[in-house]
């Protein structure tokens, strides 16, 4: 069954089963492996992408429910080789990346957060990422990155 959607600004049509998830379409058909599969049960948030601007766990979203939608993945946050988005740059500058496997999911959730609230408070940032697990950092540097990316004072 054909599925048409927009991914990172480009219109694409792919073959997808009814049982296929959006994550399977992104990783296996479109080879966009920046989006990670951590649990396939919607718990870890590593697979977070934006569907029409809203962060979703793509591992439990039926691919066909994204038909006609604008999907943005981590690969779409910056042009290949081009300037990074402010939150991407802030993750680098604030040492918010360790193993990095959760990073794409965090970046997508936070991109949506910043679009909605350009100067989020620290507690609100923590609440916003409550669906994203990071096992390495203990989260503070991730919060710092949001503060830096939104021009707010970094607590440390």
């Amino acid at each position: 069954m054909n599925l048409s959607l927009t991914v990172n600004g480009a219109a694409v049509t792919v073959e997808a089963d009814g049982a296929d998830t959006l994550l399977m379409v992104l990783r296996d058909r479109l080879r966009l492996t920046g989006t990670k599969e951590g649990c396939t049960e919607g718990e870890c948030g590593a697979c977070t992408v934006l569907v029409d601007g809203v962060p979703v766990d793509s591992c439990i979203l039926a691919a066909h429910s994204a038909a006609g939608s604008e999907v943005q993945t981590v690969e779409g946050l910056a042009d290949r080789g081009g300037a990074l988005s402010p939150i991407q740059q802030a993750f680098i500058d604030n040492f918010s990346v360790q193993c990095g496997f959760c990073t794409p999911g965090f970046l997508m959730t936070l991109t949506a957060l910043i679009a909605e609230d350009p100067t989020p408070e620290e507690e609100w940032v923590k609440a916003a990422v409550s669906g994203n697990l990071c096992r390495c950092t203990g989260y503070t540097t991730i919060v710092d990155a949001v503060m830096a990316a939104t021009g707010q004072e970094v607590a440390r």
């Binding site: 993945t73 993750f91 680098i92 990095g100």
Partner: peptide
Amino acid sequence: DAEPKVRG
């Protein structure tokens, strides 16, 4: 390694 990680 941070840049390749934030770019996916």
